[in-house]
Design a protein around this nucleic acid. Structure first.
Lengths: 223, 223
DNA sequence: TCCTTTTTTCACGCGATATTCATAAAAATT
DNA sequence: AATTTTTATGAATATCGCGTGAAAAAAGGA
């Protein structure tokens, strides 16, 4: 398990590192958003602990950019608790957040909880849309939706990469396998069928023109 | 499956009860730690959902005392997430925890996960379908159903993994053993025979196309 | 041993699914 | 507005996966 700690203060990084390493986690560090982004694309990272207040590129922006590429769980650090509201409005699905100062134990607790939650990601649920990875079934409003194997695989891949635009090539490689050499329109057809099956949620599969598709459940937060 | 819900707020107890009963669990209630302890010694309880904040005797103390007597899996409820820190320090091996407010679905997911982890079943009974693990027998409508050894093993494995889609490979590995290298049709054939023996319940073995099979008693009726 | 029961293999057929392709629609560009 | 590029859709065709029955192989039981 590798954890990336992003904070401009060396003291904080060191404290966190110490506690995490004590629990046998691999720890990487980045001083700012720029560096963090580089780390993300060059290393296999399981969790990111990200400070909001940073020079150059702040936590929000960094978060956004990371999420464009990968769906790594993120715990945010903020100095003031009021920031929480702001974070919530963000809708980029942070996994947890902590206000400084925090106890090391609390940090560890969150880290463990987030990692476990993600390991056991067995149900994806938004509103009455419920995808059960264990049961291999999709239910909408308690009604089972019959999906063909490819449609199901496709949906799972989309959900595991929510918010991320996926090219047709990437979809072919990951869902169909690297040895598949087929027509691009094949994907379109499957997307069509999947959308039909998603019914009122058909728009969650967004067309990214000139690129591919992306999955985005618009979980509107009522204010 | 009997679940004990311990919370001083009636509203909470009722909500939880409703959702659990909807999933065919037996539900018992206790308003405080004292009562909970009595229930534990007088009933066969498979899981406890325990609120931390309670008058008389709080969740921590109750947890401690229950654990002195029996090793029943426990899910803790707390109002504030900061409590999690405290809980961890406790090291009394809680099985899971939830912060209020939580979605009923989330609760159900945890309940199922915990029960699955701690499953040790003696009798599986749904309607007039009775599988007796001790007696190694299956009865339907009080009529003993003769199963071959493989059919029986297969059925047990299915039931122990209810609602989970099992690939052919997984079935071969777990039921036949890792050293078995057989034809895929072998499973199909056994499924066929098992289904025949299940009679009116033949549909409880659901085909998951492109994947394998899963066991599911009585499709849930949508409310 | 022989006979019975159980397990495994396998080929066939059918229905479900995947893929291709032609055409329509939509969006971007000029 | 016209052209070009890209995506959506419907329908035709190819392929795949599952259920089945029958028969061979293996395991048990007298």
């Amino acid at each position: 398990m590798t954890i990336l700690v992003v904070d401009d203060e060396e003291l904080i990084r060191n404290v966190i590192r110490e506690y995490l390493e004590n629990e046998k986690y691999e720890v990487l560090e980045a001083v700012d958003g720029e560096e963090a982004l580089k780390m993300v694309s060059n290393h296999k990272i399981d969790l990111i602990i990200l400070d909001i207040m940073m020079p150059k590129k702040d936590g929000y922006t960094t978060l956004k950019e990371i999420r464009k590429e990968k769906n790594i769980p993120i715990i945010m650090l903020s100095a003031r608790s009021e920031e929480y509201d702001k974070l919530l409005g963000f809708d980029l699905g942070i996994d947890d957040y902590l206000t400084k100062p925090f106890s090391p134990r609390e940090l560890l607790a969150r880290v463990k909880a987030v990692l476990r939650r993600n390991r056991e990601m067995e149900v994806y649920e938004v509103g009455d849309f419920v995808l059960d990875l264990q049961g291999h079934t999709l239910k909408i409003a308690n009604e089972e939706v019959k999906l063909t194997p490819k449609e199901y695989e496709l949906l799972v891949y989309f959900i595991q990469n929510e918010h991320i635009a996926l090219s047709r090539e990437q979809l072919l490689n990951k869902v169909w396998g690297y040895d598949f050499y087929g027509d691009d329109r094949t994907i379109d057809t499957h997307i069509k069928m999947l959308r039909n099956n998603l019914g009122k949620y058909r728009d969650w599969i967004v067309t990214v023109r000139g690129m591919g598709y992306k999955f985005e459940s618009d979980e509107k937060i009522s204010s």
